[in-house]
């Protein structure tokens, strides 16, 4: 249907890297989100404040600016700081690591809000019952709250994933050969920019469709213990 002049495999390789960045960033986002949401709910002023600043600041800055800041800004910042301490070093950041960390760090802020809502959705009675059995704070969290929280978190996390996987296209700006960057290379070589970018967009679209299917399955599975009227 589309003549990619032999550049199709390049796009598929790029799609693999896009998925790798996406999954890596999602894992980081979930870990940060869990930590920061617990900080927000901890009731300790310092932790609540720190988590609040994190979500407020990150959600107010474009992803592209943060990616550029981490990839170009962080190495020079570290060099400048070390120079003040009398050390001359050259720091370079790997684009895969910079991209994955930055995307994970950004969407951690969105995941924080999802987890905060999910933790609050676990019925109070469950926690009281766990306490009545003599479970302490950590044990209640691990055995009662954490397993039940996921059911409320999955729809929100699904949304975060959908936005996150599309945001990985921005990493092409720092030359990581993911789907968007490879589509760019193919577009320049074949002189068929529309065809190449359109095929890339269809690959993104199919990732979205597969993710939607997976999300529905996960939601059903997480809700299998819920009685329906």
């Amino acid at each position: 249907m589309f003549d990619l002049q032999g550049y199709g495999h390049l796009l598929l390789d790029g799609a693999k890297l896009t998925l790798a960045v996406g999954v890596g960033a999602m894992v980081i986002a979930i870990l940060i989100g869990l930590g920061a949401s617990l900080c927000k709910l901890s009731g300790i002023a310092v932790l609540t404040g720190a988590a609040g600043v994190y979500t407020t600041v990150i959600r107010g800055i474009p992803e592209l600016v943060l990616i550029l800041l981490v990839y170009y800004g962080a190495p020079t910042l570290i060099q400048d700081v070390l120079k003040l301490m009398g050390m001359e070093v050259y720091v370079a950041v790997n684009p895969f690591i910079a991209g994955t960390l930055t995307i994970g760090f950004i969407y951690g802020a969105f995941a924080t809000e999802v987890f905060r809502g999910a933790f609050l959705s676990v019925p109070k009675g469950q926690i009281e019952a766990a306490r009545a059995y003599g479970m302490g704070g950590v044990l209640t969290f691990r055995r009662v709250i954490l397993p039940q929280m996921w059911r409320f978190a999955i729809p929100g996390l699904g949304n975060v994933w959908m936005v996150l996987i599309k945001a990985t296209a921005l990493i092409s700006v720092i030359q990581l050969p993911e789907l968007m960057r490879n589509a760019d290379i193919a577009a320049r070589s074949t002189r068929k920019p529309f065809t190449c970018y359109f095929v890339a967009s269809l690959i993104y679209l199919s990732i979205t469709v597969l993710s939607l299917g997976f999300q529905q399955w996960a939601e059903k599975r997480a809700a299998r213990g819920v009685r329906r009227a």
Binding site: K166, A167, T168, A169, L170, S172, M180, A183, D184, A187, K192, P193, F194, T195, Y197, F198, A200, S201, Y204, L205, T208, V209
Partner: peptide, 19 residues
């Protein structure tokens, strides 16, 4: 909604050159 905005911008800006 299912494709990145960057792809849409490139499709319109660079892709239009094909036509």
């Amino acid at each position: 909604r299912g494709t990145p905005l960057l792809v849409q911008i490139f499709l319109i800006y660079y892709g239009s050159g094909q036509f």
